[in-house]
Design a protein around this nucleic acid. Structure first.
Length: 485
RNA sequence: GGCCCCAUCGUCUAGUCAGGUCUAGGACAUCAGGUUUUCAUCCUGAGAACAGGGGUUCGAAUCCCCUUGGGGUCACCA
């Protein structure tokens, strides 16, 4: 499928929180590089100075590293093609655009943004084709150069042929062919001297020796523009792969209005990086053996980028929740403990060692790591006392609960070894002596010990709490019950 | 609106390229059971889809055309 090693890249813009779409595309790019023994580069696309956010870059680095999607060359690592920040490469773009200017493939345009906006309004009103009217297309190059020399504000545009077609092969979708008349004379260099995405992207991909361009489908239709730039620069084309765009539930392009899209959010919610990667991998791809829970290694072994589906996947968190639970349960307890600690989900002041005894009781109940504190608050702290109502189960009465708690208090006091083998018979004995049904004993006890309805296995709760704490809570509950008629 | 892309259960998908093995498979979710002291885990089962219409063919989810629907894009944003 892919001859030789793939040199690939992602080029996120530092304009906000690290986006889940960036991780999605990074996953495929990096995997392709790893599969072929190539390199995965990170380039920062910071040519839009108006939307630039200084803090964003580091957040992108952190989020991708957190996911394990590390890169081989980038702004922070350096590399043979440095610099990797587009704002630091303006002279390189200028050199290339000079070539285009000299060959006549590009020209200077002095129209102001306002003028063009007005023109567009008129086009809209008259239902004409929207686009650059070509005002400066045939300006005398010498005159244009002189005006530019006098620092008259201008942009540089690509001269797109009026006729003919531009075609390229998308490795996922096949040949894409567009009439040149549909393609506007693209701005290559903006008035502020910074390149547009189209220009910077193509020049950098050439300079970096990118062999496979793997990016989201939203770029599919602008690829002919890029092809035209490659051609004008006399360069051969990389292979293009346009992967499907993640969607909101209403099938529109994923957006933060309708979906959580910040990788930071997923991290704060207690999603495992393994689950996120697994989930993202499942968007457009599925393993041959239908075993949907897998790790990055197995994904790398089996993934074939050409097999990505062409449909548009809806980003549905419900399945991610399931995957997260599966990955939590798959983890080694020690590793899970450490992860809980690293991600800041242990209660304040609680160490891995402190949490070790309680962890096995809650792993099968956790969907997100963030639930750990809530599910174990009865163990690490003193929970609010249960009410009498809570101590009386549906199938019980005030009297059955009283007998249950009193029995437990009395018989458990005699148990010297707090282990399952000793506790279980005691519970049976309480049942027998008072002719209680199981729920009539277990539910009051559960509320007494944990102050919640959905606790782990009761015997394990009793063991982990220890004799003193268990008896204290039972007697506290009994008191509440007795004092409430 | 022009252009481009896409179209299998509610959702993610297998099957489409090389038409028959598809009375369309799996997973999530839902529902119903089972295990069970609650919750959860786990197990079993059920319902649930080839957008529509024309072709081509002995035979179409698979190939072709049209329609419909959805999306993307038409910026000195990426």
């Amino acid at each position: 499928m892919t001859d030789g090693s793939a040199r690939v890249r992602i080029a996120p813009s530092p304009t906000g929180d690290p986006h889940v779409g960036t991780a999605y595309v990074a996953l495929f790019n990096r995997t392709l590089a790893r599969q072929t023994g190539g390199q995965f580069l990170l380039r920062i696309d910071d040519t839009d100075r108006t939307r630039y956010q200084a803090s964003s870059e580091q957040k992108i680095f952190d989020a991708l590293r957190w996911l394990g999607l590390d890169w081989d060359e980038g702004p922070d690592l350096g590399g043979p093609c440095a610099p990797y920040r587009q704002s630091e490469r303006t002279d390189i773009y200028q050199q290339r655009v000079d070539i285009l200017l000299n060959s006549g493939c590009a020209y200077r345009c002095f129209c102001s943004a306002e003028t063009l906006a007005e023109a567009r309004e008129i086009q809209k009103k008259n239902k004409m084709r929207l686009g650059y009217p070509g005002t400066c297309r045939d300006l005398d190059p010498t005159e244009a150069r002189q005006r530019a020399a006098k620092e008259e504000p201008h942009v540089i545009r690509l001269r797109v042929p009026d006729e003919g077609q531009t075609a390229f092969v998308d490795q996922i979708r096949g040949e894409i062919r567009v009439d040149n008349s549909e393609i506007d004379d693209q701005v290559l260099i903006k008035t502020d001297g910074f390149p547009t995405y189209h220009m910077a992207n193509v020049v950098d991909d050439i300079e970096f020796g990118i062999t496979h361009v793997v990016r989201a489908e939203e770029w599919l239709i602008s690829t002919p523009k890029h092809v035209l730039i490659y051609q004008a620069l006399g360069q051969s084309l990389p292979k293009f792969f346009h992967v499907p765009l993640l969607r909101n539930a209403d099938h529109s392009k994923i957006s933060k209005r309708k979906n959580p899209v910040s990788l930071d959010w997923f991290r704060e919610q207690g999603y495992l990086k393994e689950a996120i990667l697994n989930f993202l991998a499942l968007m457009g791809w599925s393993p041959a053996d239908e075993q949907e829970v897998f790790d990055l290694d197995r994904f790398q072994q089996e993934f074939n980028i050409e097999k990505i589906s062409t449909g548009a996947p809806v980003f549905d968190l419900v399945k991610l929740d399931w995957l997260n639970g599966m990955h939590i349960r798959k983890m080694d307890p020690q590793a899970l403990l450490q992860r809980l600690d690293e991600e800041g989900f242990l209660p304040p002041g609680v160490s891995c060692q402190d949490a070790a005894p309680i962890l096995p009781l809650v792993t099968e109940r956790m969907v997100r790591l963030s639930e750990f504190c809530d599910r174990t608050d009865w163990y690490f702290g003193e929970p609010a006392a249960p009410t009498a109502d809570q101590l009386i189960p549906k199938k019980g009465t005030h009297e059955t609960s009283r007998m249950a708690l009193a029995g437990a208090l009395q018989l458990l006091a005699d148990v010297t070894t707090f282990e399952a083998a000793f506790i279980e018979p005691v519970l049976d004995q309480i049942l027998d002596q008072n002719s209680l049904k199981k729920p009539q004993l277990f539910m009051p006890l559960r509320w007494a010990l944990t102050s919640r309805q959905d606790s782990p296995d009761l015997i394990e709760v009793i063991m982990v709490l220890g004799k003193d704490r268990a008896l204290d809570r039972i007697s506290r509950a009994l008191e509440i019950l007795v004092n409430t008629p």
